[in-house]
Design a protein around this nucleic acid. Structure first.
Length: 1010
RNA sequence: GCCGGAGUGGUGGAAUUGGUAGACACGUGCGACUCAAAAUCGCAUGUCUUCGGACGUGAGGGUUCAAGUCCCUCCUCCGGCACCA
């Protein structure tokens, strides 16, 4: 029998038409006796033309879908269009066309192109996200989220692309540039509709475990969510400068700096008899003067001195000692002393007045005690005055304090926190404006920072900052005041936007502290075992270095590293409180044993103290996330209108269900100018007033297209449903998607958004499953023949339509499956000769018809069944390249054989059918009436695969030297004897002793000789 | 820096639990057919070789009868995150 030539252009059109006319690929939601399988490829942007990437995205997964269908599953493999959005709109603007017309024409054109792939899409289930019937449900879901507090409107810093004239989500900003056009993204304050994706951060993170995805995709999502566990620690911020001064009889020690240094001074805190407040902090609320200081009289104890001072000073005689503090741990008080001299040697005696009876005082004394208010700016000068008639003392005014919370993963270092840093955008900075004495300087710095783009800020690692003078923070662990700085190395959107800085144990803080000469306090002693894994890093001309944990990079010799460690230990032995002297500063980021901290935690390990210290200072253990809420407002025309209207007072209200779909208006000049085009629609404005009343206005932003694509996989299940987005039954039948094919670029965008969306719907009880995709496969990239990414400018673009016209769709599909392992998302260059190789293979399969005989050549039978087995297994694990190569191997043998029977030839074209659906249909239909694609994938016959005899390689000392045919029944001894008698073996064993005989049945024989 | 992944002929890539490294395809060479070319078919194709064999999966060690595969040290490339507290 002689058959015609294989001519794909004839047969492909024919069978595409046949499949369409016969609804071959129409899928029911439930089929008796069949399990459902939902195979999904990310749907297409109707940009106008199909490129090779589309073929790779749709035609190759179609092989898998067809195989699953032939394997007995009821397979849904749908296709639709993600038809709203910037690319379509930009293209429309460029050509001066209406984006709607342009988009819908493209979709018509592309539907035909998609048909030419021979993919088994069920077109009856198709839709486009710009169809009002579709976006009605997008809007409805928005209103559901709104009603359930999953969406909010807030004024936030947004990523603005000046070229696209719209806001972008964080996920759409790549290296500080617009993901679409590459322009630099700037920060802009705008009111945005925000979806509370962060509320689902834990679920999105934890549920990854339940998904059967490649772990690299899961890892990328986890990184994006960026969950960190740590503690929130409250720091009290207060004014640091003394600014009220009064005169009065008191201790002149406060006037002069020198004496206080050498004297053992007493600071007395008087407690109000009727409440627990310290009077020094509430000075102005009482009618007597509050604290007294003085040197200890000879022969008197501290307590006696204190009591005498109080009696004399206040006139109250009934005073009792409450507590003597051996060192100031009372932050409020400490300033006063500090202001005079930091290293004052003093005691605090805490006393209580037991009644309010007062001895008579002269009028002069009374008047002396009057307050003298002076301006803050003059305080310092005042303190230096020598012409005071009376002794005076400084009094802290009532302090205005507020808490700032810092986030840290290293609470164990809290005792070493020597300053606090706020992000430039931190609210507290503006809140403290009136108390900050160097506001001009601070404001300048904030200006400078705001001019930097995110990119600049990331690139320049040189640390800058400004101290907030006039305020300070109290380290809640030590009670000591520490300076507060603002610096842009602290990011507003991570943690709380404020950090406690521990220069002795954090690399960044160390750099900053060395630059600005801030103190280092060493509180965690690393365990010795960690030394080897360290890196010294000289950060300045000083003898300062960093011993960083968690790095394998060694900069400098091991001796150098050891020297640094030894220097550190030596120094630690000579200091008492952990304060590192100037010029001998170092930073060590290892965890270890706590030192120089509170008694309760000293000598414990970092890990043990995490919750202890947190509790001790009233903090809380929390998690923080890198993930931020999803801003979905876009100032563009071609998108789903946000179903919100504003009343005359400007309050937002949802558009009620009966007005959905809230139609996108037509009468709009959509040229982007930074304001929302919908604001220019007269019809939109009028419609809103007609329905809601005069003065009501519509929301004029549209939604990010990632909203449209966050739920589209539900619509395929029930796309004609006018009452629900999809029936619960249909969702139960199909969801979650069994295998989702898509691009790696969506790992932290669409894939994360849609997971969130489904979880939100699930929380509201609107969908049964709480994850959209059980399986996920990121496909690779097809490069141009020169190995570079295809682009018009590089002239390496392959036009699939043209290739198809030469070699046919089957060849193109199959070549793409052969180009590399589909289950590994690598980059595969398109090789025009490779395409020819596939075409040759199909031609040879076609010509094999000429070798059809009565019965199949015996020598082929085992190969055929092995091939059937391998092809099935390989498609299942999406190693389509090896599935194809095994069919090629079989063909090589078949061509040299005496021929195959018609029924065995049929088996061959059945296993080939998923790859080359048109050609196999043609070959099949010559003898059959039902489509090959509705037949069952052949079952291999195990008994025909394993023949009794097998050729095994014989190794001698691990090197292959001979072969032997081994039957099933042969004993090991017989086999050994037979092998040792073989001349090829004796050649090697002659005169040597066989030490060991290893026989791995079915695999190998190895003789060890000496 | 941290987290993933990968390094195999001239090229894309095979090698399912450690068991004949380089399947399959491209390219190249030679041959057949042809006046010739294309197409097609056949043979060869890791490197070196004294034709016995030796060496070979990024580098260097190790475990094993046996290592592309397992372990250790290191190098390079790709992807994600990154002044992330």
């Amino acid at each position: 029998m002689n058959h015609s030539e294989y001519n794909p252009s004839d047969i492909e059109k024919k069978w595409q038409q046949y499949w369409q006319d016969n609804n071959t690929y129409q899928v029911e939601n439930n089929v008796e006796g069949k399990e459902n399988f939902y195979a999904l490829s990310e749907f297409a942007y109707p940009s106008g033309n199909l490129h090779v990437g589309h073929w790779y995205a749709f035609a190759v997964p179609d092989i898998y879908a067809r195989y699953k269908r032939m394997s007995g599953y009821n397979v849904l493999y749908p296709m639709g269009f993600d038809s709203f959005g910037l690319p379509a709109e930009n293209a429309a603007i460029k050509r001066g066309l209406d984006p709607r017309k342009w988009t819908y024409e493209n979709m018509d054109y592309m539907r035909n192109q998609l048909r030419s792939m021979g993919a088994s899409f069920d077109w009856n289930r198709s839709f486009a996200t710009s169809d009002p019937e579709y976006y009605k449900w997008t809007q409805w879901m928005f209103t559901q989220f709104y009603a359930n507090d999953l969406i909010m409107r807030s004024l936030t810093k947004t990523n603005w692309c000046e070229s696209c004239k719209t806001v972008l989500a964080n996920e759409q900003v790549v290296n500080g540039q617009c993901e679409r056009c590459g322009n630099d993204v700037i920060q802009k304050d705008m009111a945005q509709w925000m979806l509370k994706i962060t509320e689902f951060a834990d679920e999105l993170h934890d549920d990854l475990e339940t998904l059967d995805w490649d772990h690299s995709i899961k890892a990328a999502q986890r990184e994006w969510i960026g969950r960190k566990e740590g503690s929130l620690i409250p720091f009290t911020i207060q004014e640091s400068e003394v600014y009220d001064v009064n005169t009065g009889p008191g201790d002149d020690a406060f006037r002069e700096c020198e004496p206080i240094v050498d004297r053992d001074n007493v600071v007395v805190i008087i407690e109000h008899p009727e409440n627990d407040e310290f009077l020094c902090a509430k000075w102005k609320q009482v009618d007597w003067q509050g604290f007294v200081t003085g040197g200890i009289e000879d022969g008197m104890t501290i307590e006696e001195t204190a009591l005498a001072e109080v009696r004399e000073e206040t006139g109250y005689q009934n005073v009792e000692i409450v507590k003597v503090h051996d060192q100031s741990s009372h932050g409020l008080f400490w300033h006063v002393v500090k202001q005079q001299n930091r290293r004052a040697n003093y005691r605090i005696v805490h006393v209580k007045l037991t009644d309010l009876e007062q001895v008579e005082r002269s009028e002069e004394e009374q008047s002396i005690a009057d307050f003298l208010w002076i301006p803050r700016a003059e305080v310092n000068d005042f303190l230096k005055r020598e012409d005071m008639k009376y002794p005076w003392r400084v009094v802290i005014n009532e302090l205005q304090t507020q808490d700032v919370k810092v986030f840290t993963t290293r609470v164990d270092t809290l005792f070493g926190a020597t300053y606090v840093v706020l992000a430039p955008e931190h609210n507290m900075v503006q809140n403290l404006k009136s108390q900050i004495t160097n506001w001009d300087e601070v404001e300048n710095y904030l200006d400078e920072v705001s001019k930097k783009s995110d990119l600049d800020r990331q690139q320049s690692k040189e640390k800058t900052g400004v101290q907030l003078k006039g305020i300070e923070a109290i380290n809640p662990a030590t009670g000591k005041p520490v300076p507060v700085w603002v610096a842009d190395y602290v990011l507003a959107h991570f943690g709380t936007g404020a950090v406690m800085a521990v220069p002795a144990h954090d690399e960044r803080d160390a750099e900053f502290a060395i630059k600005y000469d801030l103190p280092f306090t060493f509180v965690v002693l690393p365990s010795a075992g960690e030394i080897g894994n360290s890196r010294p890093l000289i950060t300045s001309g000083e003898n300062a270095f960093i011993l960083a944990a968690g790095t394998t990079e060694k900069k400098g010799s091991q001796e150098h590293i050891n020297a640094e460690w030894n220097a550190m230990y030596d120094l630690l032995g000579t200091i008492e409180d952990g304060a590192l002297p100037n010029g001998k500063r170092f930073c060590c980021t290892f965890e270890g044993k706590i030192i120089n901290s509170a008694k309760e935690v000293n000598t414990k390990t970092s890990e043990e103290t995490l919750s202890m210290i947190t509790k001790m200072v009233g903090g809380e253990i929390t998690k923080t996330y890198r993930l931020r809420d999803w801003g979905i407002s876009r100032q563009r025309y071609w998108g789903t209108p946000i179903p919100i209207v504003y009343d005359p007072e400007g309050n937002p209200h949802i558009v009620p269900d009966e007005h959905l779909p809230w139609i996108l208006p037509d009468d709009v000049d959509f040229t982007p100018d930074g304001t929302a085009p919908l604001a220019r629609s007269e019809e939109f404005r009028k419609r809103t007033e007609d329905i809601f009343g005069p003065g009501w206005t519509p929301e004029v932003d549209t939604m990010d297209t990632f909203v449209d694509s966050s739920w589209y996989f539900y619509r395929y299940l029930d796309n004609k449903n006018n009452n629900e987005f999809a029936s619960t039954d249909s969702m139960k039948s199909w969801m979650p998607v069994d295998m989702y094919f898509g691009g790696a670029e969506h790992t932290t965008m669409h894939l994360l958004y849609s997971r969130f969306w489904v979880k939100a719907l699930h929380k509201l009880g609107l969908v049964p499953a709480n994850e959209p995709y059980k399986g996920r496969l990121n496909r690779g990239l097809i490069l141009g023949p020169n190995g570079a990414k295809m682009s018009k400018s590089k002239g390496n673009v392959i036009d699939p339509d043209e290739v198809v016209s030469h070699v046919g769709a089957d060849t193109v599909r199959m070549y793409l499956a052969f180009i590399g392992p589909f289950n590994e998302p690598g980059n595969y260059p398109w090789d025009p000769n490779g395409v020819v190789g596939i075409k040759r293979f199909l031609e040879r399969v076609w010509r094999l018809q000429n070798k059809i005989t009565e019965s199949t050549d015996e020598s082929l039978i085992s190969d055929l069944h092995q091939t059937i087995k391998k092809v099935g297994e390989d498609i299942d694990r999406l190693k389509l390249n090896t599935a194809i190569s095994s069919m090629m191997s079989f063909m090589n043998k078949a061509e040299k054989s005496d021929g195959v029977s018609q029924s065995d030839y049929n088996l061959l074209i059945q296993i080939l059918a998923p790859f080359a659906p048109h050609m196999c249909e043609e070959l099949w239909m010559q003898n059959n009436s039902e489509s090959i694609h509705m037949t069952k994938f052949p079952k291999y016959d195990e008994s025909k695969i394993s023949s009794g005899m097998k050729a095994l390689p014989i190794q001698i000392n691990g090197k292959v030297r001979a072969q032997v045919i081994v039957g099933e029944g042969e004993s090991n001894d017989d086999l050994q004897k037979r092998i040792l008698e073989m001349s090829e073996v004796q050649k090697w064993t002659d005169g040597k002793q066989v030490k060991k005989f290893i026989h791995v049945p079915g695999k190998i024989i190895n003789l060890v000789i000496v």
